[in-house]
């Protein structure tokens, strides 16, 4: 069991005095990120839904990035990955990341191809 905790987040920008204090600090940060997501989701600013980056709306990219940020802090601070040995941490984190990127790439590419077939091929499905 790792009894000693690393008490700084944001690469040392924010240092906490105790582990309890760090937990509350992370909670405030996660709540803020969620609030930003919800507000963006309700307003849906034109400037973000209008622009498309790599075939997806900019707003959706922002949502996905914010989600990964939240996931990072849940895993690193709530699940204490920050206090584990780096080899253990890497084994746990990079394995799923690699597999998920691989699977998502294949499935989304295939789905886009089927979409094109439905759209341009001689298949009627919307009747």
């Amino acid at each position: 069991m790792a009894h000693e905790h690393k008490l700084e987040i944001f690469r040392g920008l924010l240092k906490f005095k105790s582990n309890t204090q760090k937990i509350w600090g992370v909670l405030i940060f996660l709540s803020l990120v969620t609030a930003v997501e919800v507000v963006l989701g309700i307003i849906k600013p034109e400037s973000l839904t209008g622009t498309s980056v790599l075939g997806m709306k900019l707003l959706n990219w922002i949502f996905i990035i914010l989600t990964l940020v939240k996931a990072y802090y849940i895993a690193w601070d709530f699940m204490h990955l920050r206090d584990e040995k780096s080899a253990f941490r890497r084994a746990l984190v990079w394995t799923p990341i690699f597999l998920v990127i691989y699977l998502t790439f294949i499935l989304l590419t295939e789905a886009d191809y089927i979409y094109e077939v439905y759209k341009d091929g001689f298949v009627t499905w919307n009747f």
Partner: peptide
């Protein structure tokens, strides 16, 4: 992840 990727598949198919 498999479930969510499958969701993404169906969604991109009927985007």
């Amino acid at each position: 992840s498999g479930f969510l990727a499958a969701y993404g598949f169906s969604r991109f198919k009927f985007i």
